Computed example of a mutant assay.
Amino acid sequence: MKRSRATSPPSISAAAKPPLTPPATPILKQKLQKTGIPKWFPLKLTQTELTLPLTFPTGQTFRWKQTGAIQYSGSIGPHLVSLRQRPGDDTVSYCVHCSSSPKAAELALLDFLNAEISLAELWSDFSEKDPRFAELAKHLRGARVLRQDPLECLIQFLCSSNNNIARITKMVDFVSSLGLHLGDIDGFEFHQFPSLDRLSKVSEDELRKAGFGYRAKYITGTVSALQSKPGGGNEWLLSLRKMDLQDTIAALCTLPGVGPKVAACIALFSLDQHSAIPVDTHVWQIATRYLLPDLAGAKLTHKLCSRVAEAFVSKYGEYAGWAQTLLFIAELPAQKALLQSFSQSHENSHKDL
């Protein structure tokens, strides 16, 4: 998904917004335990269960980079890994570039990919409930919902507020660069996401100078709020995985800069809240076109956001967030063009009969 889940802001001149600059504080380097020549191993997920271009560049995370034709690389905790698919090959392979334990890296990767959830079973269930979903699923297989570290996900979506993908990515890269350097792949630097303690040492002024604008106070305010939580902010965030969705959303919305839409993104992409529906104008259009046609032309309000979320859950059940993810992806320009080409090929084949 795009998953900034917001329209692009008005264009701003370079003079008004200075380009992002390297962090003022030194970047720490750790002694890397590299694996030497990259060795690729099959992952326990076929292309039906994971299609990389339908998962990584769709706005769930802004920390993974495309480092090959169908290859994406990123860090999961202290592990630097790559995933790739080759044309005509139904398997997904992974490579561990840096880790203290390759086995631990594999387990962390599978957890990050929500590998225990069967996409085939979900897609079958959704397809029975919705003929349109069944048609889309034929061509858009393998779009998974990720299970990210909650702090990492939270900071990313604070950067996404009223922003565009290019600028979100630059902001997230800046924050990421404050963490331990893990290695370089295809010209990209990769870092372990900075700890809450490291983030607390970054001032609002430093972030503003780096081009974060008003989001700077949200990040520093949220970091401060998390540090004040009993037991620590990381434990507090992880505890939200065990709560009901509405309580999770309400808890997240107590943090500076987190509204219902951002909270739903964090809940869906990091907190095991599989029925969370991040509602923006794009999802609103999908809902009024296919689920709530009687509301077409109405103005999206907070009350209607709740109604949209309820409509998705009523239609698709406890994993409604996964269904909405694919429907959202189907509306992205690249996927719409792909679906149109499939449709034209289908029409042409019928004409030839």
Rank of each mutant, 00 (worst) to 15 (best):
K2G: 13
A6T: 14
L20C: 14
P26I: 13
Q33N: 13
G36D: 07
I37P: 11
W40S: 13
F41G: 00
F56W: 04
A69H: 04
I70P: 03
Q71G: 00
Y72W: 15
S73D: 06
I76N: 02
P78G: 06
H79C: 04
D89Y: 05
H97T: 06
H97Y: 11
P102N: 02
L109H: 06
L110N: 10
A115M: 05
A115W: 02
I117N: 03
S118K: 10
E121V: 12
P131M: 12
F133I: 01
L136P: 00
R147L: 11
Q148V: 05
C153K: 04
I155H: 00
L158G: 05
N163P: 06
N163T: 12
V172H: 05
V175M: 15
L182T: 07
F193H: 01
P194D: 10
P194A: 07
S195Y: 01
R198W: 01
S200P: 06
E206Q: 14
Y214M: 04
R215V: 08
Y218H: 14
T222F: 02
V223G: 01
Q227L: 14
K229R: 15
G232W: 05
L240V: 13
Q246I: 09
A251C: 07
T254V: 13
P260G: 03
K261F: 08
K261G: 09
H274P: 03
H282L: 12
Q285V: 05
I286E: 08
P293N: 09
A296L: 11
G297R: 10
G297Y: 04
L300E: 14
T301I: 15
L304A: 14
L304G: 09
A309H: 06
A311T: 07
Y316K: 08
L327C: 11
I329W: 03
A337G: 02
L339V: 11
S343M: 07
H346Q: 14
E347R: 06
